[in-house]
Amino acid sequence: MAMSFNQTGDGEWKLDVTGYSCPHPQMYTKKALQKMSSGDVLTLVFDNPSSGESIVAMCESDGNDVFEREEASGNFVWKIRKA
């Protein structure tokens, strides 16, 4: 298990924090979004449900858009567009 954050295309990034509990996913997501430019899209992969609540609230506060959420069997794949 290791965190990974990579650029996957033009304006597209992927952060995988599978296996990590609070507060890793939300803190890594915050750092990842800070690194990205406005309009870039982050694909976020995680499996800690409670981090999702914090990430939604964090995005809402900063104006970032969680525009797609796939959720099943404890695995979450979200797409976030940076404001």
């Binding site: 797609e68 959420r69 796939e70 099943a72």
Partner: peptide, 16 residues
């Protein structure tokens, strides 16, 4: 951000 406007769907290949 409007969270309610986001789409939520099950990941492909995963069970009900």
């Amino acid at each position: 951000m409007d969270v309610n406007a986001s789409t939520t769907k099950p990941a492909p290949g995963l069970k009900r």
